[in-house]
């Protein structure tokens, strides 16, 4: 149910993003989605790829510090109120959303968002059966990731 996301430490200066992307490209690893958190001083690049273990190795050899984090990808109805209804369940359970970002592609006509919850297991529990959790297989097969 959970996805393995890679987090990469970045310095906040021009031209820093090229190196990790190039390292992955050279290894033939495609990035499914990504997000960049930045502060004045540094940034954290967050990536979802098909083979997280392999990508971690590639990035570490290229000199990056990499952490693997468990995230959950959820299908969110692409209509007004689709997200807020889902968030309400999380909020009521007092689970914290540390960050979230979106996939560019839709899955079965729904949007797909990546969530980092303070307590992923608890979040899965309270979401209810009608919320579709996107498994790795769904991602790769339905989104057609090579």
């Amino acid at each position: 149910m959970k996805l393995h996301q890679l987090s990469v430490f970045m310095e906040n200066k021009p031209g820093q993003l090229v190196a990790p992307c190039k390292a992955l490209a050279d290894a033939g690893i495609s990035i499914i989605t990504l997000s960049l958190a930045d502060t004045e001083q540094f940034g954290i690049l967050r990536l979802v790829v098909k083979d997280a273990t392999e990508a971690q190795k590639v990035l570490e050899i290229a000199g990056f510090v990499v952490k693997v984090t468990e995230v959950i990808a959820l299908q969110v109805p692409d209509c007004a109120g689709g997200l807020s209804e889902l968030l309400a369940r999380i909020e009521n359970a007092e689970v914290n959303i540390e960050y979230m970002y979106a996939f560019t592609d839709k899955l079965d006509d729904k949007g797909v968002l990546v969530f980092r919850f303070s307590d992923p297991d608890r979040a899965l529990e309270v979401l209810g059966e009608d919320v579709e959790v996107v498994s790795r297989v769904d991602l790769y097969e339905k989104l057609g990731v090579k």
Partner: peptide
């Protein structure tokens, strides 16, 4: 230099470290 041991996935965590 940030090491694997020091690095956390959260911005807040890194700010605390700094």
């Amino acid at each position: 230099e940030v090491t694997a041991e020091l690095f956390t996935d959260s911005v807040k965590g890194m700010e605390v470290l700094q």
